[in-house]
Amino acid sequence: MKAEECVMESSMLKIIDLSFSYDGKREVLSGINLDIKAGECIGLIGANGVGKSTLLKLIVGLEFAKKGKIIVNNMEVNSKNLREVRKNIGYVFQDSDAQLFMPTVHEDVKFALLNYGYGKDEADQIAYETLKKIGIENLKDQSIYHLSGGQKKLVSIATVLVLNPDMIIFDEPTVCLDPKNRRKFMEVLRSLGGTKIVASHDLDLIYDTCDRSVLIADQRIVKEGITQKILTDRELLENNGLELPLSMISRNKMSVIM
C-alpha cells in the first residue's frame, strides 16, 4: 500500500487505455497508455495529424474521451474537477491567435493572475517580470492584434509561465520563432521546474530539451523511451513519417565527408 502511494505521488500524469474520436466514427487516438513522473520533460512527436494536439487537449480537459482515464496530479480529469486540475496546468496553444484575447500584452499576461486572486499591483509586478524573463518587456503596452506571429507565440508562452504551474504543456512552441528567440525559449524551458510536455516537429528542440520522448503514429503510441535513442533511430522515424533531426543529419554528413 505504501509503495503504491509513493508511486502515485511521483506520477504527475497518468493516461490509462485512452481512446478518442471527434465524430464518434473515426478514432484519432486508441489505447493510449502513458505515465509521466513529476519533473520530467517529455517530447511528443509524430507526423501531421496523428493526434498530438488532440492528446494535449484531452489532458487539459478541452475534450473528453468516452473511453479511458486521464489522471493529473492524482485527480481524474473530468467535468467535475476541471477547475482544480487546470489550476496546476499551463497550456500553450498551437495557434496563438486563439489564445490571446485581451487588448494589450500586459493585460493578457496578467489575466490569469487576477482570476486567481492576486492583487492588482502584485499581478502587474509578476506579469512584468515574466515578460522580462522571455525578453519581451518592450511589447508590454502593445495591442495584441498588432503583434507578429513570433511575438504572439512569445506572449502566449508568457501568459502560461506567469502562474508558474506544476505542469506546462507546449503545443508547437517554436513555430514562428526566429533562431535567437528559439534559443531563448530553450533556455527558459530548461530553467523551468515542474513537469513539461512539448509537442513539436522541431526535433532538434526535443533532442536538446526532453529527457524522454513519445512517438505517436496510427492512433497509437509506437515508441516511448529515452529521447536520444528514439531520435537517432532513423528507421523508426522514417517508418512513422518523420526524419532524423537536422543536427543529426548534418552531423552524419560531416562524418561522411571526413
Partner: peptide, 23 residues
Amino acid sequence: DKAGNVYDSMELRGFNPDTFFDK
C-alpha cells in the same frame, strides 16, 4: 470556432463567470 477557442483559453486561465465580475 475561434470564439470557442478564446473561451477555452479564458477558462484554462482560471476564468470563472461567478467570481470574475465580483472583484
